[in-house]
Nucleic acid binder design. Structure first.
Lengths: 245, 245
DNA sequence: CGATCTGTTGATGCTCATCAAATCCAGTGG
DNA sequence: CCACTGGATTTGATGAGCATCAACAGATCG
């Protein structure tokens, strides 16, 4: 839950009381192993699952059975929308590695927002960022070639990892297999593999085991046509992130 | 503004007072002609533009200068997110035909939501639907062939037009040029043209002038792999829409 | 009534999907 | 500790879907 509060604090400034009442909304914890789909399309959701450790993704299944990933969730991200009470999911959620989630009571957090403008604006901010990321993904899959598309995704995940403090010496935990990346980028696994090799040969990144290392951030962002405006970092911490480059 | 209230009422039930106080948030009206970009990427937004007549779209500009449309707005849709105060736009908005908008004061509507759960849940609902549509678009552009992709878009717009009462005898106003459609679907205009011809030859739709007529809804939805779940119509009016098929 | 936007058609080639198979690696059980 | 297993990565070869270029016809508008 710590990660979630950090994320909320990224945009707003929660008071000590607000933080403790947020903690009080947590009803329990769960753990899932790699590959496990723990939220299913079409189901109603009551509680909210907040990632505390590990990565997950939202995905949809096409008629031919292939899966399209529509967003990645990192520690601190929630797996459902918070606002609408008990809506049905139009996508599924699966763990991309070992994952731990905190179960948050939706009603409780809703009543909290009534009395906390800071919290409610933080939640609204995260919803807008979600939408914004999806817009950029649309641009990504339609207007950029496979290699650039991949580079762009790596840039996004690198920035998102750094704002939650998960980057050290340009290196981060990176649980995505090539198959998962191909499902996110709308490419075949084969072609994605060749795209990775291209980035490696250009000396831009190194990607092995479950670690991603950025070899040359400024050249990578230029190559990827990456501009972090769409992540809406225009609040606090921005300098910290930019320093990391 | 009538269209906006209708949209809000689609999911929640606003009281007479709520409706009139919504009306009171309107500070003026504007009209734009076809092709006019009236909201620019990177700019801060203060007021909210609500479409009262005509269609508009959100789009992003790629480095090569091409435009990617990331969503369409129909009468009743708002051009900005309502929640976050004065965020910067990560996209531009342009009119797809002659358009009329109502200018709504953001602060006023925000204070309204504090006292109206119905309104605030209606706003949250529309934000979730937006996200859901973008998720489906991601699936659309990555997993479906050009013809199916086009058919899917036509299905979506047909349903969205019918829930705001803009469909008569399977025919609707349809201001999108082939170029605009190609910008939304990530296709070349040439290939899009051939896709339209394919749909015409199959007797599924007729698309000429600024009118779209659905010739065979059930066959079209099957062909398009279209399922309206992602539009979250699971409240009122659903039967009305389904009847139209 | 010319100028410009939109729609249509044909020809060519590139990006990426698909199929197939080999290699590598982590985990598992005997 | 090693054989076994299934997943992940890699390489090669072939072909399909769509982009691109070019040109023209039709529509729309000032």
């Amino acid at each position: 839950m710590h990660a979630f509060i950090t994320k909320m604090n990224f945009t707003s400034c929660l008071s000590r009381e607000e933080e403790t009442s947020l903690q009080a909304c947590v009803e329990g914890h769960q753990a899932f192993s790699k590959g496990r789909t723990f939220l299913n399309q079409g189901k109603k959701t009551d509680g909210i699952h907040v990632l505390t450790e590990g990565w997950a993704c939202r995905y949809k299944i096409a008629v031919d059975g292939s899966e399209q990933i529509i967003s990645f969730m990192l520690p601190g991200d929630s797996c459902e929308d918070i606002f609408p009470i008990a809506n049905t999911l139009d996508h599924s959620v699966k763990a991309l590695g070992p994952v731990r989630v905190a179960m948050v009571n939706r009603q409780q957090i809703m009543t909290l927002t009534d009395h906390s403008p800071a919290l409610s604006s933080a939640l609204a901010w995260s919803c807008v960022v979600d939408k914004s990321i999806m817009g950029e993904w649309l641009l990504n899959v339609t207007r950029r070639s496979a290699v650039v598309r991949l580079a762009h995704l790596l840039c996004e995940l690198y920035v998102r990892a750094s704002i939650i403090g998960r980057v050290e010496r340009h290196t981060m935990y990176f649980p995505l297999t090539q198959i998962v990346m191909s499902e996110a980028l709308g490419l075949s696994a084969v072609h994605l593999n060749r795209s990775i090799q291209s980035l490696r040969q250009q000396g831009l990144v190194s990607l092995e085991g479950r670690k991603l290392t950025i070899r040359h951030w400024s050249r990578l962002t230029e190559f990827a046509e990456f501009n972090d405006d769409y992540l809406h970092l225009d609040r606090k911490l921005v300098t910290d992130v930019r320093m990391a480059s």
